[in-house]
């Protein structure tokens, strides 16, 4: 009797996850129908966002999300791989433990703090170097890169650590240098895991709100240069959600949220199911 109740309680909790996820999609979809009906495909291809005229085109926000994430990945990937190699192959055991833990702890620092640092300490430097406001796509890309770096380095290191020692030792026995072992043994062996980890980090970066809200500018224009202020989907949501005053405005914001959710779901699913599953099967 109690056995049955216990089973049912745990099963209901587990099914609740599926239910919530489905519910999120349904709710976001329902609320964005009005915008979709009004604008159709123009919603994602036009960049005119004028609440006073009831015109909502999300292209600038979508472009800003993609561009800032791309920029962040461009900057973070080489450094993260370098850090991962350092942590898994180069560093002395004692340093490894200390740096390894500090990298993981840094990944836990709230992203809003990266945003504050960006606004008060990094944007002025950019302003001095490039002129202009300092706030914009470049600042967002760099702050995002720094924010995602600890997570990316930690998961990439974990992927590299799956390489069996025996493979590495055989390569050393043949006279390989450390770099030979890294380039010809570890990276080929852990390739799927490394790519999966990098994409997973990308999935996190694309939905990141607080690190970029401070430094992006929230201007609905597709930027002409990397220094121009622009916006992204999460930045628009964070700035405008509580200000929306018409149902079409709301509906457009829900449309943005749905777009973002679909984008990140696809990215994360590719990382998990295509690359990281390969790793699990390989083991």
């Amino acid at each position: 009797m109690i056995d049955k109740i216990f089973l049912n309680m745990t099963r209901t909790s587990a099914l609740l996850i599926l239910f919530i996820v489905a519910w999120i999609f349904v709710v976001l979809f329902n609320h964005s129908i009005e915008a979709m009906q009004t604008f159709g495909f123009d919603f994602i291809t036009k960049d005119e966002w004028a609440p006073n005229l009831e015109k909502f085109g999300a292209y600038a926000a979508i472009f800003g999300s993609v561009a800032s994430t791309f920029l962040a990945m461009l900057l973070a990937i080489p450094v993260a791989i370098g850090v991962a190699i350092f942590l898994s192959e180069i560093a002395h055991d004692k340093i490894k433990g200390f740096f390894g833990v500090s990298v993981e702890l840094l990944a836990a620092i709230p992203s809003v703090i990266y945003g504050m640092w960006g606004l008060f300490f990094f944007v002025p430097i950019l302003r001095d170097i490039f002129g202009g406001m300092g706030i914009g796509l470049l600042a967002a890309g760099i702050v995002l890169a720094i924010m995602i770096l600890p997570f990316m380095a930690a998961v990439t290191r974990d992927a590299m650590n799956t390489t069996p020692d025996i493979l590495k030792e055989s390569a050393y026995a043949l006279g390989g240098t450390q770099w030979d072992v890294i380039k010809d043994i570890i990276i080929p062996y852990a390739k799927a895991g490394i790519i999966g980890s990098l994409i997973l980090a990308l999935g996190r970066a694309i939905g990141e709100t607080m690190a970029v809200t401070f430094v992006m500018g929230n201007v609905h224009h597709t930027p002409k240069t990397i220094l121009d202020p622009t916006t992204s989907i999460p930045v628009t949501l964070a700035n405008e959600f509580t200000e929306a005053d018409s149902s079409l405005y709301f509906s457009s914001l829900f449309g943005l949220a749905l777009t973002l959710l679909v984008m990140s779901f696809v990215v994360i699913a590719i990382a998990k199911f295509y690359f990281l599953r390969k790793v699990r099967k390989g083991q």
Partner: peptide, 19 residues
């Protein structure tokens, strides 16, 4: 359930707010 929950772990938190 494991797969969906894993994806949810990295889903954008602002979307949860909107929901």
């Amino acid at each position: 359930i494991r797969d969906i929950s894993d994806i949810m772990m990295s889903a954008p938190s602002i979307v949860i707010g909107a929901f």
